[in-house]
Design a protein around this nucleic acid. Structure first.
Lengths: 215, 215
DNA sequence: CATTGTGAACGGATTCACAGCC
DNA sequence: GGCTGTGAATCCGTTCACAATG
């Protein structure tokens, strides 16, 4: 029962499996093999089986996986079986877009508040969303017992915002600010710096040019 | 001179080094050691030296790296020494936010066009940006010789858009659509699915709760 | 007998340790 | 003396191969 802690690479694939399962269930598919999951995801069948094995044995030998059962298990593993409260800090264009995106597409999370310093951003046309000024941050995090934050503030203020988040019990941060955040052990930061993603993409776009010249 | 191809993990770190160097140069720092770079980035000093070694020997033993020189080298390596033309396909909230973000923060790229099917999105208040209807896609890619695309269209139409992109010579795609894209060899796709990022973050937010209970 | 679950082999990336050089 | 550059050792994730089983 005491399994090894799943590596990050595995955890990153779990939501992909979940999405495929949602699609399959919508199409009334009840059983799925690791081979077909492999076709749908692009990961190898062995890898999928190994990934799931970190958390238990969910399949039936000779048959495959029951889509609904596996979905339930994945929801529980990822932590989406109960709705997760999140906050968005920085309510500029990117913060607004991410908020809308999640309210529309992600039934598993609930955005319980957005925060900005600019008074012009303190109202919104997004239905059912409360926008607060930054000085309400501690209060809301504690009252709502929020653990997850999306950060889209300018790099210059990111660290001081993070210090407040950590102080008030946030344990996971999705960071869009282009800067390294310093956090204590136990607080997980995932950097989603779009400039960096785009720049590494450019590396590959020209690499192929180079290859084209050679061949 | 014939070095091994740099692995993805290395390429993802290069833009981080570049950003740190930009900051250092702005503060008139002229020399930097791998140790200090390590403090700034969170990567180990050995790793930084190994990363750079994939592309050449840019430092001075006993001294460190000249910030301006290393920056020039990195720009060349990543492919940012000449301005890269990119297009944004899907000009909803996310597409608009990403466009604005890049026009403001990323001097190395130039967005030469945005595309959307919805006629309501075909105008914009973003200065100097041309918004086209989707049927102009092939024409613009070819005329401007674009190689890099940011994709923020709905998942249902993503693959058919990608087929057009590939057909017209796009070689690198930053994909925000929550779906697996099928592309031929030589076309690089980087998935930046925000739902998946957020869901794996939630995994870690609860993992820490579990730990707290145990200890 | 098809498909899962998993120990063993493999390979790629990181860390170590130190030689090379300013 | 101090810091880079790099072969060797190690670590970790993926792939292989097959035993287990409905």
């Amino acid at each position: 029962m005491s399994r090894k802690k799943a590596p990050k690479s595995v955890v990153k694939r779990l939501p992909v499996y979940l999405r495929i399962l949602d699609n399959l269930i919508r199409r009334d598919v009840e059983i799925i093999s690791s081979r077909v999951l492999s076709d749908e995801t692009g990961f190898t069948a062995e890898q999928i089986r190994k990934d799931l094995a970190y958390f238990g044995a969910f399949g039936t030998r000779g048959t495959g996986y029951n889509t609904s059962y596996l979905r339930e298990k994945l929801l529980r593993i990822i932590g989406l079986d109960k709705q997760t409260k999140i906050i968005v800090i920085g309510f500029g264009h990117l913060g607004k877009a991410l908020t809308r995106y999640n309210m529309n597409k992600n039934p598993y999370v609930k955005i319980v508040g957005a925060f900005d310093n600019d008074p012009n951003e303190l109202h919104t046309d997004i239905e059912g969303l409360q926008v607060y000024s930054m000085d309400k941050l501690s209060e809301v995090i504690q009252k709502e017992d929020v653990k997850v934050a999306i950060l889209t503030v300018p790099a210059e203020v990111a660290q001081q915002v993070v210090d407040i988040l950590v102080e008030n019990g946030i344990t996971a941060i999705l960071n869009f600010a282009p800067t390294k955040l310093h956090t204590p052990e136990g607080v997980y930061v995932h950097n989603a710096d779009l400039t960096i993603e785009l720049q590494s993409l450019i590396y590959y776009s020209q690499e192929d040019e180079g290859r084209a010249l050679k061949e």
